[in-house]
Design a protein around this nucleic acid. Sequence first.
DNA 1: TGGCATCCGGAACGCTGTTCCGTATGTTGG
DNA 2: CCAACATACGGAACAGCGTTCCGGATGCCA
Lengths: 192, 192
Amino acid sequence: MADIDSGSVPRKRADARRNERALLDAAAAAFVTAGVDVPVREIAVRAGVGVGTIYRHFPTRADLIVAVYRHQIEACAEAGPALLAESDTPHAALAQWIDLFVDFLVTKHGLAAALQSDEAAFQTLHTYFLDRLVPVCDQLLDAAAAHDEIRPDMDAYALLRGVGNLCIGAGNDPRYDARRLVDLLVAGLRVH
Amino acid sequence: MADIDSGSVPRKRADARRNERALLDAAAAAFVTAGVDVPVREIAVRAGVGVGTIYRHFPTRADLIVAVYRHQIEACAEAGPALLAESDTPHAALAQWIDLFVDFLVTKHGLAAALQSDEAAFQTLHTYFLDRLVPVCDQLLDAAAAHDEIRPDMDAYALLRGVGNLCIGAGNDPRYDARRLVDLLVAGLRVH
DNA sequence: TGGCATCCGGAACGCTGTTCCGTATGTTGG
DNA sequence: CCAACATACGGAACAGCGTTCCGGATGCCA
């Protein structure tokens, strides 16, 4: 929303913009094949730039991850209110929305683990996810609670962290079905 | 169960036994203050030995972790049948046993994360936990299912991994209550 | 006590993230 | 079109980590 030359910002150099795009593409590809923990040097090689260039554009790994996945996270956030409007019950909307979140996480190798990391480098990632998704989840929880479908004292932050945690390692092990466990967790929220 | 001099094994040198004990003590202390990911060199310094000595006694980090926590894991495993005998219902026994498991995990900084790691160094840890605890969990699940208290198709392996996952990061964040989420998960197992 | 099997210490290597600065390149005013 | 400046680049260099390896020390037994 501030990418087109809008006066005050002097617009970056052409090579800088080219490298930034190359880095995003290279990172996205590398994340798929080697996970979000792929070594910085490998991303640099793929993008055909030096490591310094990565740090100039994306000071932390979290910045790069957020940049790569921003669109999908936004889409997930925006799906919340939509589902609430469409679904028969708020609890159904909540379940569907969490399914979307799980779908997103389990297809990004290592992302769920990175989300829970307490290393400083992942602070931005943590913050972005929470700022964007906690309010949405909170809205869904409130609506479901207002319909007496779920316990009224569930914290959106804790729920999202729990769901994120359950997604760690999904896809590495056919015996571990993260989706199933998340469904059980959501089922456990219901009032009986 | 094979520590006392039993014939064939020629009994280790005195300094080797001393170092092994020193390492176990040092590692236990280091795990408490710095988590199970504490650098190898730090354990070596605490124990007053060289890093080579660590690798001689405990080839992988998992071997050291297992050695440090073996007693507690055994106790947890043995508590399963005991709870089943004492409790009013199998589901109550299951819930209590999982509480024990959670208590164990949340007090060991970083252990839950190590348990889910797919790095080769943690293979032994993974294997030991599963070999020891999955059968116990399976027994509890079977008993509860036989009483029609829970869904009959829950896999012990998946459940334990899920519980372990939910414990990741517990204790780092007052807003995240792993125990609460585990309770919800177990509640979700019930048939209604 | 002598001699040997065992064990020890820590230097050294490879891989990782991160910083830093000499150099190259795009941009802009004349 | 060209010069001069701000901007951005590359990759060497450093630090922290796990892991290996071997010359030397040390316990043990005859």
